[in-house]
């Protein structure tokens, strides 16, 4: 059994950058600020690459809706992490775009993959996003593709000898729910998983780039209608910093202080 693993993932501003909402709504100088692949999609890409490596004949695709110039920049790093094929859609990646507008673009892009076989299809992505976090994009993509087996907040996927899946999903109270699924097709919205970030591997990068650059060049420009959503106001979350810097303080005392603070 092999899989066609499609990872849905877009870009978000580098988390270290200063984000300043401006009219539009948009972020000030967003196009000029460096971007990274959305961290949740990032994890799902590692999981996809890990699965593909362990299941012979499997292939990873990365489907991304983003401004292609920004996406190209991000691919210089992401492209070195794991072998995959990019399907790029030139569109907005802003946090002010609604899941209902992006999901159909992703679903259409997935359907356009030549030789797509629903029986081998696993759709991966982040269960939320650093830019929006509505938690609904993957669910809509699944519905549009007709995939009813959907799992959100996934931390672990184990493939059984019979091709069935055991999936750990995050639930309330810091616990996991164990689900069983007969096999593909399925949608998995990943939380953080447990895999470390693979090191950069320029050899993989060079291999990927031969297909990534043409994919970026032929990315179709897409406009997203934003009329359906109105933003009444946009503001940064207020910074709340209650930091205390201590040096050489025993862990027991630190723990006591934290407990006391919680009990306040």
């Amino acid at each position: 059994m092999s899989y066609q693993i499609v990872v849905c993932g877009s870009i978000v501003p580098d988390p270290l950058q200063t984000l300043e909402p401006v009219a539009g709504p948009a972020l000030k100088n967003e196009m000029m600020l460096p971007s990274v692949l959305d961290p949740w999609a990032w994890h799902s890409l590692f999981e996809a690459a890990h699965l593909a490596k362990n299941v012979a004949g499997s292939k990873v695709y990365l489907v991304s809706v983003a401004p292609k110039a920004k996406l190209q920049q991000v691919m210089m790093t992401v492209g070195q992490k794991a072998p995959f094929e990019l399907i790029a859609v030139d569109g907005p990646a802003s946090g002010f775009t609604d899941a209902a507008e992006i999901a159909p673009l992703l679903a259409d892009a997935i359907k356009s993959i030549p030789g797509l076989d629903q029986s081998k299809l696993l759709v991966f992505g982040g269960w939320e996003s650093a830019s929006r976090g509505a938690g609904s994009t993957m669910q809509i993509v699944g519905e549009l593709l007709g995939i009813v087996n959907q799992f959100q907040g996934v931390d672990k996927l184990t493939v059984g000898a019979d091709g069935s899946f055991e999936i750990l999903e995050r639930i309330e109270g810091g616990k996991h729910q164990v689900s069983k699924c007969a096999g593909a097709p399925a949608v998995l919205g990943w939380a953080t998983g447990s895999l470390p970030e693979p090191p950069n591997n320029p050899q993989i990068g060079m291999q990927n780039m031969r297909a990534i650059m043409p994919a970026l060049q032929k990315a179709k420009p897409t406009k997203v209608a934003t009329d359906a959503v109105k933003f009444a106001s946009v503001a940064l979350p207020k910074q709340q910093r209650q930091t205390k810097i201590v040096k050489d303080m025993p862990a027991d005392e630190i723990a006591k202080e934290i407990v006391a603070w919680i009990q306040e």
Partner: peptide
């Protein structure tokens, strides 16, 4: 100035192999 500005200034904007190397 970001990577794109630097890549133009130092003339490797058309060399993705070098841009990847920079990230690495």
């Amino acid at each position: 100035p970001g990577d794109d500005v630097r890549a133009i200034l130092w003339r490797f904007a058309d060399r993705y192999d070098l841009q990847m190397l920079v990230q690495s």
